[in-house]
């Protein structure tokens, strides 16, 4: 039982982080809070993907003595999995561009409605 908790607890913490971000996205009324929640949500998913790459007993995915002769064979179990790192590097950059566009839309909304609270914007649009 203790081994089961020890090998799975970080997945549960990622789910809790994702729940915090999801609650901020659908439960909070301020638009900047929603953007912060979206950031937390995306970071939790990226954290989950990076954690699938971890390997017990493996080092960083940088080959030792790589500029030498290269005579020694490379063991795949000695290095952690590099592929999720590459994909998540792309995802981080996409996350920041999403953040930039979301904040630009938010500034445009503020110039038009002069508020950032969702219920006040809806009330102004129903008039």
């Amino acid at each position: 039982m203790f081994d089961f908790i020890l090998s799975k607890y970080n997945y549960w913490i990622y789910v809790i982080l994702m729940m915090i971000g999801f609650y901020a996205m659908i439960g909070k009324r301020n638009l900047i809070k929603k953007v912060i929640g979206m950031n937390i949500f995306q970071t939790a998913i990226i954290l989950f993907f990076v954690s699938t790459a971890a390997k017990r007993g493996g080092t960083l995915p940088i080959i030792e003595h790589g500029h030498g002769h290269g005579a020694h064979a490379i063991q795949a179990t000695a290095y952690i999995n590099p592929l999720p790192h590459v994909l998540m590097l792309t995802a981080i950059v996409v996350m920041v561009s999403t953040l930039g566009v979301a904040l630009a839309v938010l500034i445009a909304i503020y110039r038009r409605h002069n508020t950032l609270e969702e219920d006040e914007i809806l009330r102004q649009q129903q008039k």
């Binding site: 953007v35 912060i36 990076v50 790459a53 981080i92 950059v93 996350m95 920041v96």
Partner: peptide, 26 residues
């Protein structure tokens, strides 16, 4: 966790540029 490339991309891009963008928006 051993993902050093992801770590310094996050430190420069998300914690740097993201925070600057959010402060500008606020």
């Amino acid at each position: 966790m051993g993902a050093v490339d992801v770590a310094f991309t996050e430190a420069s891009v998300s914690a740097g540029i993201g925070t600057v963008l959010l402060i500008a928006a606020v």
